[in-house]
C-alpha cells in the first residue's frame, strides 16, 4: 500500500515538473512548484512508514519542507511577481512545445542513466533515483530556456527538489546534515533572488535577465 503511495507521490512530482515546462504563465509555474514540493515532502514520511515507525526526524523534515517550500518560498515569489508586475513568460529562448519534448527526452535519459548509477544502498523505491535525476534535468532546462528571472528561480527550485530526493537516499547515513543544509541554502537563495529581482525591476523597469548582459565587464 505505502509502496503504491510512494510511487504515486514520486510520479506526481515528476508530472508536475514536466507540466511546468509547458506553461507560459508564471503564476501557474509557481503553483506547480509548490504542489510538487508538497509531493516531495511526503516522500520521507512514506519511506519511513514503509519500514515501520515514523521518526521525529522525518516529521521535522516534513514540517520544514511544508513551511519553507510550500508556503514560504511561493509567498516570496508571488510577492516579487506582483511587485515586478509580470504575469507571463513572453518570449522564452526555447518554445514551450519544444521544451516539453526536450523535457520528455531528458526524463527518458534520466531513467536510462539512473540504472547505471552505483549506489551505496538500495533506494526505497526504484523510481526514486530516476525521478530525482529527471527533476534535476528539468530544473536546468527551465533555467536555460526561460528569459524571465522569476521563471529561472522556479527552475532552480525544481532542481533543488531533485537534489532533495537524492538526499533521501542517504537519510540513514547523514540524518539531518544534507536536508537542513539544502533547505537553508534554498531559503537564503530565494530571499536573495527576491531582493535582486526587485532591484533589477527598479533599476531597469522590467525583470528580463537579458539586461544583466550589460554588466559583463
Amino acid at each position: 500500500m505505502t509502496n503504491v503511495a510512494l510511487d504515486i507521490a514520486l510520479i506526481l512530482a515528476l508530472l508536475l515538473g514536466v507540466t511546468s515546462l509547458g506553461t507560459s504563465r508564471i503564476g501557474a509555474a509557481i503553483r506547480y512548484f509548490w504542489m510538487q514540493a508538497a509531493a516531495v515532502a511526503m516522500v520521507p514520511l512514506l519511506i519511513e512508514t514503509r519500514s515501520g515507525g515514523l521518526s521525529v526526524h522525518a516529521w521535522v523534515l516534513f514540517a520544514a519542507t511544508m513551511v519553507l517550500k510550500v508556503w514560504g518560498v511561493p509567498y516570496f515569489l508571488n510577492r516579487s511577481v506582483r511587485e515586478a508586475s509580470v504575469r507571463t513568460e513572453v518570449e522564452p529562448l526555447i518554445g514551450f512545445g519544444v521544451s516539453l519534448m526536450l523535457g520528455a527526452g531528458l526524463v527518458g535519459l534520466s531513467f536510462a542513466l539512473a540504472r547505471q548509477l552505483p549506489l551505496p544502498q538500495r533506494p526505497a523505491s526504484d523510481l526514486l533515483i530516476p525521478v530525482a535525476f529527471s527533476l534535476l534535468m528539468i530544473g536546468l532546462l527551465l533555467i536555460v530556456s526561460r528569459s524571465k528571472a522569476v521563471t529561472q528561480v522556479v527552475g532552480y527550485l525544481v532542481m533543488e527538489n531533485g537534489i532533495f530526493l537524492f538526499g533521501l537516499l542517504l537519510i540513514d547515513v547523514f540524518p539531518y546534515l544534507i536536508e537542513l543544509g539544502v533547505l537553508l541554502d534554498l531559503f537564503v537563495a530565494v530571499f536573495v533572488m527576491g531582493i535582486v529581482i526587485f532591484h533589477i525591476n527598479r533599476a531597469f523597469d522590467h525583470i528580463d535577465s537579458h539586461q544583466l548582459d550589460t554588466l559583463k565587464d
Binding site: L93, L109, L113, Q116, L117, M137, L140, L141, I143, V144, S145, R146, S147, Q152, S209, H210, L212, D213, K216
Partner: peptide, 24 residues
C-alpha cells in the same frame, strides 16, 4: 557569452557529458 542561460547551459552540458562518460 552574454546570457546567464548560456552559462547554465554549459554547466548542463558538462554534467550530461560527465554522466554519459561515467554511466553511459
Amino acid at each position: 557569452p552574454t546570457r546567464v542561460q548560456s552559462y547554465v547551459l554549459a554547466i548542463f552540458a558538462a554534467l550530461l557529458a560527465l554522466l554519459w562518460w561515467r554511466l553511459g
